[in-house]
Design a protein around this nucleic acid. Structure first.
Lengths: 232, 232
DNA sequence: TTTTAAACCTAACATTTGTTATGTTTAAAT
DNA sequence: ATTTAAACATAACAAATGTTAGGTTTAAAA
């Protein structure tokens, strides 16, 4: 297992990393601050794209409504992530929605400004398109997990992914803070059934739960559940 | 339900439709014929991209190996489909493999020739990138189905999709001809358990099976299993 | 054609997951 | 601080799915 987390991470926080200092300045000065309250949406499925977003603070879920009502969460964005560019490149409508899980501080680049940036910074377009290709592979991996793993394993894998994504940047360890419904909508089960798996992990000492926050105590045990080599 | 099938179809057989006659000629004269025997692969996960492919005859499966061995099929290509361009745009390696389900007749455009075409035909690049965005939405829909639907419903939806994809072009109705293992690897179950669902559909008169080929007799019943408005 | 291996079908039993129901805790609103 | 609604935990039972094993059919190889 070369790079477990990269297989499931869009890595859209690294999109501007390849730029020079002056190019980065060009991008950052083009940004407009935006405040999105918890529960509101940055964009809607079928909506017309207006620009791209970077999360400065807070978390957001990318969702697609299944055709029998319920919503499927297929990604959780965290601070630093850039999003909303797929539809822009394709000159089409949004394929999915993005909803704030907390109050968000966002940097926004309007469509026209973004296209001007693409022209003036030659490497930028390829960086974005390359990332779309990578994200395509991430979705394929998520498909494989949902199709092949049982509920315990799906929970295990997603706990590892979310724990890594939520806590890689910050110094202190904050665990995983999501509603049971959201977590259930990620791993593809009901909140009640999810509770059963969480209880099982608690009894094994793999996790500790305080209020609704999940803290991982034994990563190795989670990896073993996936029958994988450990490498973290 | 506006367009059920489009939600699950890459529509990569339409990529050249927007071109003028002379542009199409440019593309078609750049193609080299290729023969791929059943069971061989057009390209491999982690491999370096060499060009793009169009299936002239035959079917191929796009697969991603899950990290505990087994393969996940997340798309079946049919005659007319263009594929292999994701990795080319991103200047990266293939994210997945593509294996011939039958002997294939393929048209191949080498990487350099393809890039030259992109330069000389301005609309081509946007058409391709737009389609990658569409395919992204298709994968998100597949994720929603795998996460939210039980086995009967997953089989029902995939029978509808495959039946449409395999039989929309040709005059005669050939049903769905796949090994039980491949079909199980699409809907995310074991061949034995798949057999149980197929038997159930047979007993209800929804399908007829001859040899291993599945013929749909009652589309409406399959749509009803998905609790959807019928529109076909 | 005959042989051989792979694919297929089915059933029985074990395990997992879905569903319903009830009570408790937590967070939001007054 | 008090009230109210949402979120959460748990258990019991029903239903779906996984797994193992047997025999049959089909397609490939000799």
């Amino acid at each position: 297992m070369k790079d477990f987390y990269a297989q499931f991470d869009f890595q859209s926080n690294l999109l501007f990393d390849a730029l020079t200092v002056s190019e980065k300045n060009k991008v950052f000065t083009a940004m407009e601050p935006l405040f999105i309250p918890k529960g509101s949406r940055l964009f809607y499925e079928e909506g017309i794209p207006t620009g791209i977003f970077q999360l400065k603070k807070g978390k957001a879920k990318k969702i697609k409504r299944g055709f029998s009502g319920s919503e499927q969460i297929f990604y959780i964005y965290t601070a630093g992530d850039v999003l909303g560019y797929h539809a822009l490149f394709g000159e089409e409508r949004y394929q999915d929605s993005c909803e704030a899980l907390e109050d968000l501080e966002v940097s926004f680049i309007p469509k026209d400004v973004f296209f001007a940036l693409l022209k003036s910074i030659p490497t930028l377009q390829q960086t974005f398109i390359k990332n779309i290709g990578h994200e395509f592979g991430v979705l394929a991996n998520i498909i494989a997990v949902l199709a092949q793993k049982n509920q315990h394993a799906r929970l295990a894998i997603n706990l590892l992914i979310l724990d890594h994504r939520f806590n890689q940047q910050c110094q202190d360890y904050n665990g995983i803070d999501l509603t049971r419904e959201d977590l259930a909508n990620i791993i593809g089960t009901s909140p009640e059934s999810l509770g059963r798996s969480l209880k099982h992990f608690r009894e094994q000492g793999i996790i500790v739960v305080e209020k609704r926050v999940i803290y991982i105590k034994n990563k190795q045990a989670l990896f073993q559940l996936l029958q994988m080599e450990v490498d973290f």
